[in-house]
Computed example of a mutant assay.
Amino acid sequence: MGLKSLKKQRRIQIVALAAVALVVSTGLIGYAMRDGINFFRSPSQVVEAPPSPSETFRIGGLVEEGSLVRGQGHEISFSVTDGGASVPVVFEGVLPDLFDENQGMVGTGRYVDGVFRASEILAKHDETYMPKEVIDALKEQGVYEDPNAGS
């Protein structure tokens, strides 16, 4: 093997490596973005314009009173509401300690066949942890009372 073919081989390796690096970084950016653009939707928005079953997004609102059902094993179902509409949620796993009816929650997952299949549930026990989007959605529906408004 001459020196020329070695150099050529080396160049091919570098180009191939750069191509792989580009694909990987693009994939990682896409993945990070996908997480960042886990769009937040209120139950009213989900009902009005149902997202595609392949889209992962966040839903937030209050756990509807009387809707919490603990099924077989770890499966839990409940409805999340913003006062305007409610969306049934199915979640398999361990719920956060503060999770309860009439409490704020945010779930990440997909909306499939009219049911939000949550991969993650976060309980929002008091207003300081409640995401701004949830508060705005609840205010929009006239459900949310600002605890600091009266003081």
Rank of each mutant, 00 (worst) to 15 (best):
L17H: 08
E64D: 06
M1P: 10
S79P: 09
K4D: 03
P50K: 11
E64N: 09
G66P: 14
I76P: 00
Y31Q: 08
I76V: 13
Q9D: 14
S67A: 05
V63L: 08
G83N: 05
F40Y: 12
S52D: 02
V63S: 02
E48I: 09
D35L: 12
A32Q: 00
G73S: 14
E48L: 09
L62I: 14
G66A: 11
P50D: 11
L68Q: 09
F57C: 00
G61Q: 14
L68K: 12
L3P: 05
I76R: 01
V20A: 10
R41F: 13
K8S: 05
F78D: 05
V63K: 09
R34D: 05
V63P: 11
E65N: 06
I37P: 08
R41S: 08
K8Y: 13
G27F: 08
V15T: 09
I76Q: 00
H74K: 05
G84N: 14
A85Q: 09
R41H: 04
A16M: 04
A18L: 08
A18F: 04
V47F: 06
G71N: 02
S52I: 00
L68H: 12
V63D: 04
G83C: 01
A19D: 07
P51F: 03
N38K: 15
M33P: 07
V80S: 07
A49M: 07
L6S: 13
D35F: 12
E75S: 11
I12F: 14
I12K: 11
E75V: 12
M33L: 15
P43R: 13
R10H: 05
G27D: 01
L22N: 01
